[in-house]
Structures are given as C-alpha cells and as structure tokens.
C-alpha cells in the first residue's frame, strides 16, 4: 500500500472536519426544531468513513449502511447541500425529501442507502456481492452496520451466504460500544465482535477506527485483498460516538469520564498532531480550513432552508416504477 501523500492527509483532515462541523450543525438545527424525526450523529466516528471510503474506488465500488448515514455519502462525494436539504425534507435533497436523516441515497455514487431497520441492509450487501460475482466485475461492496446489528438473524443469514458463495463483501461493524443505550458487552457473548466470522469460516480483521491513518491503511489492504480473492471479510472497526445515540438520548448508561477519556483519542486531533509533527500543515492552515469548512456548512444550511418543499402533487411519485 502506498503511504498517503501530504495532499491526501489534507484531504482526509478536511473530510473529517467537514463531517464534524456538518453534524454539529445538524444537531443545532435539530435543537432549533428546523427539522424533526430521528437524527443520529456521526461525531467521533469520522475516521471510519474517511479512512474506509478513501480506500475504495469511489463511484465504482458499492457502499451501503445503516441509519447513521449523514457523513458517508459526503465522503463519497455527495454535496453537503444535498444531504442537508434531505435532513430538512426538501425537494432538492438526495432522496427528494422522501428519506430524511436515515435514508440518504445516491445511485450515481453507488451509495445504496441509509437503512432504518437494524441489520436489514446486511443481506442487501450480499445481493450486491452476488451481482458483482455474477457479472464478473472487479468490484467490492462495503456494508456498514452498528455493533448491535450483529445480534440480528439477518446478519447471520447474510454472512453465511456471503461465505458459502465467496461474495466480495466487506462487512464493517462500526463498534462504538453501544447499541442505543445498551452496552454491546451486555448483548454479545464475544469480547472481539469480529470473532463472529469464525462461525462462517470467514476472514476477519480488527481495525483501529479512531485513527484515520490506521483505518485507511488497513482498509486499503482489505479492499484490495477482497477484490482479488472475492472472499468476504468481517471487519470490526473500533470507534466511539461522542454524542448520544440520537438527539433524544440522556446518556445515563455511560459515565462522563468514559466519554472524556475517549475524546482524548479524537480522530481530528490525532491527525492534526501528526500533520504538525510531519510539517504537513501549520496552525494557519488549520485555521484556514476551519473557515473554508464553516462556509461550506453554512452554504448547505442556506441552500436547504431556501429550497422548496416537495410539491403535494408529487406525493404519489415513485410508489411504483414505470
């Protein structure tokens, strides 16, 4: 694997910073009641999105995920405008205001959604793997899920099928330690979640999802290996969410000290320290990027707020395809 270039480091940093500021702004808008419904923020997990999705061929390889899905499409290349407009349910959103926070989609970017039923997207990924194999394509699918998804029956069924048929699926558990408010240690008998792979005679990996350089390096190897062998793999991505499960989470299930400890390993700060040490960037650069990102985020909010509501007469569009 080629080491990331300085330009890539800058790109990674800016992608994670955009993710962080975008999500913070989403949280504010939610509190201001600019939109409603559910809102699951990605804050703390940015290295997973940036590290994994920069390791694939964007726009060719497929990606699917659960409902913590605002950030991954942006890393893939969707404009923050389209995501923010979808958050606000506008006609200009990436799902025309039909999906909302949990259902971002882009056929162009091969981002197959944002899915709201825990674990329900995992068999879908096996289906995409089936297509890649059937059509003899040189591609892979990345399937993201939360840690709690591994307790669903559909997870088991999908991994078994991917294993028996050698499907090029990379199943990624974003292990942030909690399924909503329940610690994964209380609901799964394994200490290492990736060990579930043993039951399917499947490859497995544990990836440091708190440090984007590690994430990128490990995922790059995994992606290319999967592309070459067409053998599935179960990846446990160790990460942590700094905010609640959703916006209505009082977080009584974990100690403030734990969150503080985790914040010491903030992926943004870790990369910044690395870039400063390597003399890739100066404090001035970081200030400049902060400003740039702030403008992009504000532009997305303005765009979303000024965008039209979907027209009522379109309510029956897309129930059935022509």
């Amino acid at each position: 694997m080629p080491a990331p270039t300085n330009a890539q480091l800058v790109e990674f940093y800016k992608d994670m910073l955009l993710a962080r500021r975008f999500e913070e702004r989403c949280g504010q808008l939610y509190v201001q009641q600019k939109f409603s419904g559910f809102c699951h923020l990605y804050i703390g997990q940015e290295a997973v999105s940036t590290g994994s999705l920069n390791a694939i061929r964007k726009g060719q390889d497929y990606v699917i995920s659960g409902y913590r899905d605002h950030v991954q499409p942006i890393t893939l290349g969707m404009t923050p405008r389209e995501v923010m407009a979808e958050m606000l349910g506008k006609a200009t959103g990436c799902a025309s205001g039909r999906g909302g926070s949990m259902h971002m989609f882009s056929s162009k970017l091969r981002y197959l959604g944002g899915h709201g039923i825990v674990g329900g997207q995992v068999p879908l990924a096996a289906g995409v793997g089936w297509k890649i194999k059937s059509m003899k394509e040189d591609l892979v699918i990345l399937c993201f899920m939360g840690d709690a998804a591994i307790n669903q029956g559909q997870f088991h069924e999908a991994l078994n099928m991917a294993a028996i048929w050698d499907l090029p699926c990379i199943f990624i558990i974003e292990n942030n330690l909690y399924g909503m408010g329940t610690a994964i240690s209380r609901t799964c008998s394994l200490n290492v979640l990736a060990d579930r792979a043993k039951g399917y005679n499947m490859r497995q990996a544990v990836v440091d999802g708190r440090n984007v350089l590690n994430t990128y390096a490990q995922m790059y190897e995994i992606v290319e290996e999967t592309r070459k062998t067409s053998k599935p793999i179960l990846v446990e991505m160790q990460t942590y969410r700094f905010r609640g499960h959703s916006m209505s989470d009082p977080q009584t299930y974990r100690l403030k000290e734990e969150v503080e400890r985790e914040r010491q390993q903030d992926c943004l700060q870790t990369l910044r320290d690395h870039m400063v040490a390597q003399k890739v960037a100066t404090d001035d650069d970081f200030d400049k990027w902060e400003e740039e990102i702030s403008e992009i985020v504000e532009d997305s909010v303005t765009f979303a707020e000024e965008s039209p509501e979907p027209e009522l007469h379109t309510i029956f569009d897309h129930v059935l395809a022509p």
Binding site: R110, L112, G120, V122, P123, L124, G129, K131, A158, N160
Partner: peptide, 18 residues
C-alpha cells in the same frame, strides 16, 4: 439457497438494486 428466507430474499433486494 440455505434455509434463510429473510437472508436470500434480502439478497434478491440488493441484487435488484444494482
């Protein structure tokens, strides 16, 4: 298929998406 109705039906949905 294995006896996994949810699984292979979901596989069908995913394959149909692409």
């Amino acid at each position: 298929s294995p006896i996994s109705e949810a699984g292979f039906c979901g596989l069908g949905v995913g394959a149909a998406m692409v």
